[in-house]
């Protein structure tokens, strides 16, 4: 039951959305798919006076833009899964988005942008965005700016977006052709929250040696963690031994593990290395 009376607005453009947001920033909530913010309102966790529904703000497009694919802030997971552009250029995203739980009912309406803005530690999208080196496009009364995904996530439920700013899209640099990728998600049960995730993008040369590597862990700490794997991986093939090393590096990278009722920090830290190892081997073997 939503108990607080609210003003419901549907801006027709991003400009209008920002205008509606600015004067009431603290009291307003943007609504993308609503799959998170609506139940939060129902259970009194947030009580906005104003709700700004972005469904007509024109932000659901997925398009190419010099060396990037820009995923609009309100593109749904289902749209990401179905996007042939993404499948061709940033194959990690459709595969990872298909693993969002809650059923087609959720994927049809929930957005990666909403997930990023909410910044729940135990969620999927933040780690993808970090692994892919995405740039988060923010628009506010004072104009537009870009923040690297790595800097965007500031803590549990905290991002670099100011209260009067909204996300318009996520610009993802197109990985080099032939890049390999994989996404590993450890969850408890068919529709459980992510407990530990790992996203990986690898560039391999013809001999199977690693040219570039990016690996990020999700759900194991307040923010996604980029794991520094370059030193061990670059120039070497992805062998079991190397994967073992990556497992240890990833394990050590989790300094302050995230704890919630499903899994405590001790558990998360102990599986962080395992998911890193598994994602790396999966990526090397073709995802």
């Amino acid at each position: 039951m939503i108990t607080r009376t609210l003003e419901y607005l549907v801006p027709g453009s991003t400009g209008e959305a920002v205008e509606m947001l600015t004067p009431s920033a603290g009291e307003a909530k943007l609504l993308a798919g609503g799959t998170w913010v609506v139940p939060d309102m129902t259970h009194g966790r947030v009580r906005p006076a104003r709700v700004i529904d972005l469904r007509r703000a024109g932000l659901s497009e997925i398009r190419e833009e010099d060396g990037h694919v820009v995923v609009g802030a309100t593109a749904t997971y289902s749209e990401i899964v179905a996007s042939s552009l993404l499948r061709e250029k940033v194959g990690l995203l459709p595969i990872a988005a298909a693993k969002i739980t809650g059923g087609a009912q959720v994927r049809n309406f929930a957005t990666a942008g909403g997930s990023a803005c909410y910044a729940i530690p135990s969620s999927d999208a933040p780690a993808w965005l970090v692994a892919l080196g995405a740039k988060m496009r923010l628009l506010g009364a004072s104009g537009e700016r870009e923040v690297a995904a790595e800097d965007f996530f500031r803590g549990a439920f905290r991002t670099a977006a100011r209260p009067d700013e909204m996300l318009t899209g996520m610009a993802i640099p197109t990985p080099p052709a032939g890049a390999r990728f994989a996404y590993h998600k450890l969850k408890f049960g068919e529709s459980g929250w992510p407990i530990a995730t790992a996203a990986c993008v690898l560039g391999l040369d013809e001999e199977g040696r690693c040219r570039s590597a990016s690996l990020a862990l999700g759900a194991v700490a307040e923010t996604p963690l980029r794991v520094e794997v370059g030193a061990v991986l670059e120039g070497s093939p992805v062998t079991r031994e190397v994967a073992q090393e990556v497992e240890e590096i990833a394990h050590r990278a989790v300094a302050e593990p995230w704890t919630d009722v499903l899994a405590d920090g001790e558990y998360r830290k102990s599986v962080a290395g395992v998911v890193a190892k598994r994602v790396l081997l999966a990526a090397a073997n073709g995802g």
Binding site: M1, Y8, T35, V38, P39, D53, Q105, V106, F109
Partner: peptide
């Protein structure tokens, strides 16, 4: 009313949705 059980599933614009995750206004 948390989007988990699916008992409230309906079709919205041709796609299935959990109607507890949407405002009536939408």
């Amino acid at each position: 009313l948390t989007g988990d059980c699916g008992a409230c599933t309906v079709v919205v614009d041709g796609k299935i949705a959990k109607s507890c995750l949407m405002l009536a206004a939408s």
